[in-house]
Design a binder for these strands. Structure first.
Lengths: 318, 318
DNA sequence: GAATGATATTGTCCAGGACAAAGATTTGAC
DNA sequence: GTCAAATCTTTGTCCTGGACAATATCATTC
């Protein structure tokens, strides 16, 4: 989603006209905050009621307006939740504590020199150089290692930097666009192996992070697979129809950490039931990693590293 | 947080019971409808209150559940609204009348043979052939004409077909992904002309249609411009920062038809004010076309055809 | 014919209650 | 000890109905 939140009345315009006591320009309306943080209006109001945070001011009409520091804190909270923290434990925490939690989890020490190089280029807005760096690494490492060793860690690093306020929104946008360009390009030029499977790629509704899907696609074409990207947010019934229409050998689904575990498990079970037996079902992403017990007939991809091996297994089985 | 979809659909049951009339499986919750139609929950409830449509049933907990025909009708209404119709006039109309309105506006007769060919390929799920068709046309027509004569009309045709229920959701997804792939690929291989401008490309928050932006980007690289895609949904303040950091010559914004006219005008005015004079500001998209009176210092792009000429003008001015 | 103002339409926001769904924890069985 | 079912807590979504801001449309004036 955005999430798909229709706000024909653009709050961006309202932001500037609000007369707040503090700098009115940077105060955000509730729908602006919904857009910026991904927390629904209902949730924002509920947290205020239950936890006492956020505590927006009110404009002259009694409507909530959020100062930027509260929005930043909400973003931090959101990001920690994506990593499995629960609201009750962290909504009350002050920014310093949140920061501590965030850095504690992201093994920053691990980040290699080349990751830092890329971060530096993003921060200094040297796009052509960034693209060049990507292409160099791509050629040197090959697509597979490029995805695993460069894109994956860099993406988390960018996310962390953004959470800490080191990157602006537009800097994250720039990064995402560039990576997408490089990956899509590499995917398009890859050769298809007729022995390799046809893989339908998508995610359940509410899974917005297309970059993850793109990474999977890249790794699959490395193995010669034919990929059929369906984009994000495909309802289950549509997945079944598409898989049959496309004569897919495998349906691969991606779940981000934010996706509720039980729903993922349930959705996978029912999808498995309605999908022909001949079609394999693979599931991956942070959410799936947490599901301990396997699901009958569903292959859990716990790490992107596994993908190559799984494709090899599939071939052997035919 | 992405809104959680409370639709644990059970396609297994769907297989067994062919009774679709009251099939609980295909009934959608209000948030599922929000996702499918792009109409917010508030709007859905409000229309029910004011116009008596939609008229969802209630599940055992008293929560709204929408049968598929009502969802389809909502989609039709939504699409007509995107074209400038007002809710009050069309929410009460029956499906046949909606259909009539829709076809009346979309000069279907215009659709050339090659558009129909492409539609046929999408409907029959022949992806490689579709891709091949695109690439053929791309080479024959060149990128510019490809975008203007093929992609633009085809995209509206696909949208219309979806509205009429001729295409499934996944079929639209397939189409979008394929076009994106072809366009991004063409863009990546284009040569940059050092005399041409650097153009920052994005849209205001709530503008989701990235395909439109991609078309503009393609047309710009045709003219040798350097494009800096920022993706969609960039807040105004971020646009200014990015334009300066990237030393852009031009900032180009895209607005879909759904975007409220006055807000577009207001947003453009304030953006113009906070942007250095040396940076041009271009605005395009269906919404901008409706703004009669020009905005000082803003170049209105009323049609994609104009882009090439505008770039030429820009060069001459330097 | 363009600016201005009045009127009608349409969408967003609010409050606070209710309760379903997800997660955590305990209990019971093998 | 491990798994699974049952229970309790937490957390998010949905509900109603009122208020009113934002937008479109129409009438009036210059």
């Amino acid at each position: 989603m955005d999430k798909v939140v229709p706000t024909p009345q653009d709050p961006a315009a309202r932001e500037s006209t609000k007369d707040a006591s503090a700098d009115p320009v940077v105060m955000l309306s509730i729908s602006a905050v919904e857009r910026d943080t991904g927390l629904s209006k209902d949730v924002l109001r509920m947290w205020e009621r239950r936890y006492g945070f956020p505590q927006p001011l009110r404009d002259r009409h009694g409507e909530r307006i959020y100062p930027p520091d509260q929005v930043a804190r909400l973003r931090s909270i959101r990001r920690l939740m994506d990593r499995g923290h629960r609201p009750g434990k962290i909504v009350g925490l002050d920014p310093a504590a949140l920061e501590a939690l965030g850095t504690a989890q992201s093994n920053r020490s691990e980040s290699a020199a080349d990751i830092d190089d890329a971060l530096e280029l993003i921060g200094s807005h040297h796009l052509p150089e960034l693209r060049q760096l990507f292409n160099q690494r791509l050629i040197r490492q090959g697509l597979q290692r490029f995805v695993l060793d460069t894109v994956v860690p860099l993406t988390t690093a960018v996310g962390d930097a953004w959470m800490r306020g080191e990157f602006a929104v537009f800097e994250e946008h720039l990064y995402t666009e560039q990576v997408q360009g490089v990956l899509r390009n590499a995917i398009a030029t890859a050769q298809v192996n007729s022995k390799a499977p046809r893989v339908l790629l998508t995610s359940f509704p509410n899974e917005l992070h297309s970059l993850g899907l793109l990474m999977v696609e890249a790794l699959l074409v490395c193995e010669g697979a034919t990929t059929i990207p369906l984009g994000t947010e495909t309802p289950a019934s549509e997945i079944v129809r598409a898989a049959q229409a496309q004569r897919a050998d495998i349906v691969a689904l991606s779940f981000s950490a934010a996706f509720p575990e039980r729903q993922a498990a349930l959705g996978l079970k029912t999808l498995r039931a309605s999908l022909p037996d001949a079609i394999d079902l693979w599931a991956g992403g942070a959410c799936v990693r947490r599901i301990r017990k396997g699901i009958d007939g569903v292959t859990q991809v716990r790490s992107l590293d596994q993908l190559a091996g799984l494709v090899a297994d599939w071939r052997r089985a035919r």
